[in-house]
Amino acid sequence: MIPVNLSEVSEFRLLGFSEVSHLHPLLCVVLFSLYIFTLMANTAIALIINGDNTLHTPMYFFLLQLSCLDICYLTVIVPKTLENLMVGTIGISKTGCAMQMFFCLYFGVAECFLLAAMSFDRYVAICYPLHYTIIMNSRVCKGLVAGTYLCGTAVGLVHTIGTFSLPFCGLTINHFFCEIQPLLELLCGNTSPSEIQVIAVAGFAIVCPFLMIIYSYICIISTILKMSSAEGQQKAFSTCSSHILVVTLFYGTASSMYLRPKSTYSASVDKLLSLSYTVVTPLLNPIIYSLRNEEVKGALRRRWRKLGPADLRPERCQHLLGPGL
């Protein structure tokens, strides 16, 4: 193939799920429903945490950041995917493709490190409860969050600049968004340096925080086993198992996508993997981390009572019904 001069390229073509075009209406309805539900759940959690003083603690500060990240992550990917499902193959400008790739990497890597920061917070809370407020002070929490965004920025810039500075031999992306692996398929000549770069950076951005999470949970479980209360052990194990499930799903699918050479790339399989960590995980995060949390549910009930119409409050209903009813 003759290399395409990138300066003359106006747009790429996103094939999306062209191999199952007969399922596009169903996929569109399902994806749109999941998108709206996830946005509503994460927005509700962000508003609840921000508006309830009892939730202004390090753990909920991290949950607030996670909800905001998930909202942004979904919004970068899903609207374009829905357009693809409705009209078929669509075009995306090279600038738009580069921006989508950057922000996908930015938010995805930031979430990797944020999950590690959240596990560290739980590690300190359970293993060093007496020193928790000293260790996890406001400066440390803000520093950890700032570090996650800095890592996301660095990875996003490295991959985006590295990929779009090379010549392309094709313009048709066999994916539903500008993911780095299908873009590597379009590069001309020897792409081994780019592949090595992707795997090396993924090792830093995925493996390192995952190992930190595993270490934290090993220490947490070890501490839990020393608890004298069986009820406390069961509650702690239930929470940990849910968190580990989400973490394994997110890191497992992301690792399968990035920690392998281009020669093993399979468009159909990798689209499913991408759906898992771009759509399913943001859907599970608010359910696992927040909506199953008693403090969040309590704050939600308080907010509901505060916002509810006065005429529907129990004491008002009793007054309207009259005495003795």
Rank of each mutant, 00 (worst) to 15 (best):
A117S: 12
C112G: 06
T148Y: 03
G152V: 01
R139C: 15
A146Q: 09
H131V: 02
V124F: 05
L115N: 02
Y123I: 00
A117G: 05
A154L: 14
H131S: 09
M136C: 12
Y128A: 12
R122D: 13
V145Y: 14
A125K: 08
Y123C: 03
L114G: 00
C141T: 06
G147A: 13
H131Q: 12
I134M: 09
C141L: 03
L114K: 00
C127Y: 03
Y123R: 04
R139Q: 13
G147N: 11
L150Q: 12
A116Q: 07
A117K: 04
L130G: 15
C151M: 15
A146G: 14
G143F: 11
V140E: 14
I134F: 08
A125S: 12
I135L: 13
I126Q: 07
A117W: 10
V140Q: 10
K142S: 15
Y123W: 07
T153P: 05
A154C: 05
M118D: 00
S138F: 11
S138L: 08
F120A: 02
S119L: 03
A146N: 15
A154M: 09
V124M: 10
I126T: 12
I135Q: 09
V124A: 11
C127V: 09
A125E: 12
R139Y: 13
M118F: 02
Y149C: 03
C151G: 03
T148L: 08
G152F: 06
M136G: 01
V140H: 10
Y123L: 08
M118W: 01
S138H: 11
G152M: 09
S138I: 00
Y132I: 00
V124H: 04
R122W: 03
I135N: 07
C112W: 02
V145F: 13
Y123Q: 06
A146K: 07
V145C: 12
L115Y: 10
R139L: 10
A146E: 12
Y132P: 00
Y128Q: 13
I134G: 06
C151T: 03
Y149Q: 09
M118V: 04
T148M: 09
D121A: 10
C112R: 04
N137D: 15
L114C: 01
C141E: 14
M136Q: 10
V145S: 14
L130A: 11
G143H: 11
Y128C: 08
G152Y: 03
M118N: 02
R122M: 04
V140Y: 12
L114M: 04
I135A: 08
C151S: 10
I135E: 14
T148A: 13
S138D: 14
Y149M: 15
H131F: 05
G143W: 09
I126K: 07
F120H: 04
A116R: 01
A116E: 05
L114I: 04
L144R: 03
Y128L: 08
T153V: 02
G143L: 07
G147R: 02
M118R: 02
L114Y: 01
G143D: 14
V124Y: 02
G143P: 15
L130D: 14
I126Y: 04
I134P: 07
T153L: 15
S138M: 09
T148Q: 10
F120M: 05
V124G: 10
K142E: 14
A117I: 01
V145I: 15
H131G: 01
V145Q: 13
A146P: 11
S138Y: 07
A154D: 05
G143T: 05
F113G: 04
T148D: 11
A125F: 06
R139K: 14
N137G: 12
C151P: 00
A154R: 00
